[in-house]
């Protein structure tokens, strides 16, 4: 059985949908962050797969993925710093109770 692009893309789609679902439903901000990472990784997989199957002689997709991983690491660090600060201020990281920023 030959492994085609669809075999990679379907798990990536499932991962992305799980990420979206988690991001919308979870109350804990850490869990939301994890969901976000899940979505990012799904996208990374897509990049690699399309590069590998559509343009095997080029490397842009691979490098883009490496780049996105680095950015994601930095972004995670930032997000965690924000969450820690919110926790210090509000003693709480439940995103539904943090609704000060409204009209």
């Amino acid at each position: 059985m030959e492994i085609t692009a669809v075999y990679y893309l379907i798990p990536a789609l499932i991962m992305f949908c799980c990420g979206v679902y988690g991001f919308i439903t979870r109350k804990n901000m850490i869990a939301m962050l994890i969901s976000l990472e899940l979505m990012l990784n799904a996208v990374d997989i897509n990049f690699v797969v399309f590069n590998r199957f559509l343009y095997p002689e080029q490397m842009e997709g691979m490098f883009f993925t490496l780049f996105a991983i680095a950015i994601a690491a930095a972004e995670t660090a930032l997000a965690i710093a924000i969450i820690i600060n919110i926790f210090r201020a509000a003693k709480n990281i439940d995103v539904r109770s943090l609704n000060e920023m409204k009209f």
Binding site: I24, V95, R96, L98, N99, E100, K102, F103
Partner: peptide, 17 residues
């Protein structure tokens, strides 16, 4: 339309989605 800006981040994600 003011209540749309509720402060609930997950609601914004819903709208976006």
């Amino acid at each position: 339309i003011k209540p749309l800006q509720s402060g609930q981040i997950q609601m914004y994600v819903w709208y976006y989605l």
